[in-house]
């Protein structure tokens, strides 16, 4: 029983990371029906840039962990805007249905190569900003960093949600998601809104990167699998549902840790993929996906 609780706790932390990356997929899908397949690389770059500020890899540390986070978020936003500008905007402009898929994948590969050249191919240790001694809770061990992951991921999603609901700029983003042409008639620069959604999406991923880095290893390849799993979560939960990615992330995270323990770590990636195939077969809009309310 205690082992199960332990596995669930670890699964929750992992699941919230999936959720927050999947949330990033949703942000760009909402405004432009496109996805940044380099989300995992945005996470990786965020972690490595964060490590360069707060770790001792490039002559640092220059800043402590908490001071580094805002800088990493700014970096993530700029990186996302760049991806949109050179990879996605041209494809949207010529109404190419698949151009953005190729270009975001191509950019992801470039980012990974660049990272390998700057930070090397080996995994690096990211210093933990909090004690690495586990806390005991319900008979299980919880790392303080895992708590920070869960709180940080939820706070990030909540902040975006509040921005969308309360500020006029957030409403402009929602309007663009609803009907891009009509949003243009309201004086909203919808091209800029799409760039903004990419910036926000990569910023979210970069933030997730520095959250997860202290509990895993940090390196150029860390993002690929995470990005893929989070994509599965976005499909499982539904590309339009905020609650969906949280539930989807938790299901996948817990399924992985329990499979890894009770069956074999070699099979820990299987439940996510099986779940993905099941959802695609039974409910392609995702568990929580809904068709938009629209009266014509």
């Amino acid at each position: 029983m205690e082992i199960l609780i332990q596995l669930i706790f670890s699964g929750i932390a992992l699941g919230m990371i999936y959720a927050v990356i999947a949330f990033g997929y949703q942000l760009t899908f909402a405004t432009s029906a496109t996805l940044n397949f380099g989300q995992g690389e945005a996470l990786m770059l965020g972690a490595l840039v964060g490590l360069s500020f707060a770790g001792n890899v490039l002559g640092g540390p220059y800043l402590n962990f908490w001071m580094m986070i805002p800088l990493v978020m700014v970096f993530g936003a700029l990186q996302g805007a760049l991806v949109e500008f050179i990879g996605v905007r041209p494809a949207i402009k010529i109404k190419s249905e698949f151009g953005w898929i190729m270009s975001t994948i191509a950019l992801a590969i470039i980012f990974k190569n660049v990272a390998e050249n700057i930070w090397g191919k080996d995994d690096l240790k990211f210093p933990s900003p909090v004690s690495e001694a586990p806390l005991h809770f319900l008979g299980a061990n919880v790392l303080p960093m895992e708590i920070i992951i869960v709180v940080g991921a939820l706070a990030m999603m909540l902040a975006v949600e509040i921005f969308n609901r309360k500020s006029i700029y957030g409403k402009a983003v929602v309007a663009t998601s609803n009907d891009r042409d009509a949003a243009g008639l309201m004086g909203i620069n919808t091209r800029l809104v799409i760039t903004f959604s990419y910036a926000l999406s990569s910023m979210t991923a970069a933030f997730a990167g520095v959250l997860i880095a202290p509990v895993t290893l940090t390196g150029a390849t860390m993002g690929s699998v995470l990005g893929l799993k989070a994509f599965a979560v976005a499909i499982i939960g539904g590309l339009t549902s905020g609650i969906g990615v949280i539930v989807g992330g938790l299901i996948l995270g817990i399924a992985e840790t329990t499979t890894g323990f009770y069956i074999s770590t070699g099979y820990k990636d299987v439940p996510g993929l099986v779940l993905l195939l099941l959802v695609l077969a039974v409910k392609p809009a995702g568990l929580f996906g809904k068709t938009a309310i629209k009266k014509v």
């Binding site: 409403k171 609803n178 009509a182 949003a183 309201m186 004086g187 938009a292 009266k295």
Partner: peptide, 24 residues
């Protein structure tokens, strides 16, 4: 010009089919 610039210049257009924002 882009529609958002024309709107900012003071032209409002209530388009065919209403086009309200359904989730707002």
């Amino acid at each position: 010009q882009d529609s958002f610039r024309i709107a900012r210049a003071g032209l409002a257009h209530s388009p065919e089919g209403r086009r309200v924002f359904p989730t707002l």
